Lab assay of single mutants.
Amino acid sequence: TIDDAFRAIERAIQAENEGRYREALKHFLDGGEMIVTAAEKEASQKVRNLLLHKGKEVLEWAEHLAEWILE
Rank of each mutant, 00 (worst) to 15 (best):
55 G>S: 06
11 R>C: 11
50 L>I: 10
9 I>A: 02
4 D>T: 05
11 R>F: 09
54 K>M: 15
35 I>D: 02
40 E>P: 03
5 A>D: 02
4 D>V: 06
24 A>D: 00
11 R>P: 00
49 N>H: 09
62 A>G: 03
59 L>I: 06
8 A>T: 12
29 L>W: 08
52 L>Q: 03
13 I>F: 08
38 A>V: 08
44 S>H: 08
49 N>L: 11
36 V>F: 14
13 I>R: 07
52 L>Y: 07
70 L>F: 06
52 L>W: 06
55 G>Y: 15
23 E>W: 03
36 V>T: 07
25 L>H: 03
26 K>Q: 11
31 G>E: 04
26 K>M: 08
2 I>P: 03
4 D>C: 12
5 A>C: 10
44 S>C: 13
20 R>M: 04
50 L>H: 07
24 A>E: 01
7 R>Y: 04
44 S>V: 08
25 L>E: 00
28 F>H: 00
17 N>F: 11
68 W>Y: 09
17 N>M: 13
71 E>M: 13
20 R>P: 01
38 A>C: 12
19 G>M: 04
23 E>C: 11
16 E>Q: 15
55 G>A: 15
20 R>Y: 05
13 I>Q: 04
29 L>Y: 08
55 G>P: 02
27 H>Y: 14
39 A>S: 05
52 L>V: 03
22 R>T: 11
17 N>G: 08
35 I>R: 00
10 E>Q: 12
5 A>V: 07
42 E>I: 14
15 A>Y: 11
57 E>P: 01
52 L>A: 05
11 R>T: 04
12 A>H: 02
33 E>N: 14
41 K>F: 09
25 L>A: 03
14 Q>K: 11
49 N>I: 11
29 L>V: 06
16 E>N: 11
32 G>A: 15
25 L>G: 00
71 E>G: 13
40 E>R: 11
25 L>K: 01
55 G>N: 03
3 D>H: 12
31 G>H: 04
25 L>D: 01
59 L>C: 09
48 R>V: 04
23 E>I: 05
53 H>V: 11
57 E>T: 09
35 I>T: 02
53 H>P: 01
49 N>C: 14
30 D>L: 15
53 H>A: 15
16 E>G: 12
44 S>P: 01
3 D>Q: 15
5 A>T: 02
1 T>L: 15
46 K>D: 11
66 A>V: 05
41 K>T: 08
29 L>K: 11
13 I>H: 04
44 S>K: 06
45 Q>V: 10
23 E>V: 04
63 E>C: 14
14 Q>W: 05
27 H>F: 13
18 E>V: 05
45 Q>A: 11
18 E>T: 05
8 A>F: 13
43 A>C: 13
19 G>L: 03
19 G>I: 03
36 V>H: 08
10 E>S: 10
28 F>K: 00
16 E>T: 14
65 L>C: 04
44 S>E: 11
33 E>G: 08
66 A>I: 09
67 E>P: 01
37 T>F: 08
6 F>C: 13
38 A>Y: 08
14 Q>D: 05
4 D>E: 12
52 L>I: 06
48 R>L: 06
50 L>T: 07
33 E>I: 14
37 T>D: 07
67 E>S: 10
19 G>Q: 05
54 K>P: 01
28 F>L: 13
65 L>T: 00
6 F>S: 03
55 G>L: 15
61 W>P: 00
35 I>P: 02
42 E>V: 14
28 F>C: 05
62 A>R: 02
32 G>M: 15
50 L>N: 05
30 D>A: 14
7 R>A: 09
66 A>C: 15
41 K>V: 06
59 L>N: 03
64 H>Y: 08
43 A>G: 07
30 D>P: 02
60 E>G: 08
63 E>R: 15
39 A>D: 01
44 S>Q: 08
12 A>C: 11
67 E>R: 14
51 L>V: 01
54 K>E: 01
69 I>V: 05
60 E>L: 13
6 F>R: 06
60 E>H: 13
7 R>K: 11
57 E>I: 13
37 T>A: 15
25 L>C: 08
27 H>T: 03
40 E>L: 15
22 R>V: 11
1 T>V: 09
54 K>Q: 05
65 L>S: 01
21 Y>V: 04
32 G>L: 15
1 T>G: 08
28 F>I: 05
3 D>C: 15
24 A>F: 04
31 G>F: 15
30 D>Y: 14
54 K>Y: 15
21 Y>P: 01
71 E>D: 12
20 R>W: 04
34 M>A: 10
31 G>D: 02
40 E>F: 15
30 D>M: 15
60 E>C: 12
13 I>A: 07
15 A>K: 03
68 W>P: 00
16 E>A: 15
43 A>I: 13
70 L>T: 09
35 I>K: 01
36 V>Y: 09
56 K>Y: 09
21 Y>N: 01
52 L>D: 01
29 L>I: 11
64 H>Q: 10
48 R>N: 01
41 K>E: 07
56 K>H: 06
25 L>P: 00
10 E>V: 11
9 I>T: 00
58 V>R: 00
10 E>I: 15
21 Y>Q: 01
66 A>T: 05
18 E>W: 09
16 E>M: 15
60 E>Y: 07
45 Q>F: 08
70 L>R: 13
12 A>I: 04
45 Q>E: 14
71 E>K: 12
30 D>R: 14
12 A>Q: 00
19 G>P: 02
66 A>F: 07
6 F>D: 03
51 L>C: 08
25 L>I: 13
36 V>C: 13
68 W>F: 07
46 K>S: 11
42 E>T: 11
52 L>G: 02
5 A>R: 01
63 E>F: 13
27 H>N: 06
39 A>V: 10
45 Q>P: 13
7 R>Q: 08
12 A>Y: 03
40 E>M: 15
32 G>T: 09
48 R>M: 06
52 L>K: 06
41 K>N: 12
39 A>T: 02
14 Q>G: 04
34 M>D: 02
2 I>D: 01
12 A>G: 15
65 L>V: 02
35 I>N: 02
34 M>F: 05
27 H>I: 05
51 L>D: 00
26 K>T: 06
65 L>Q: 00
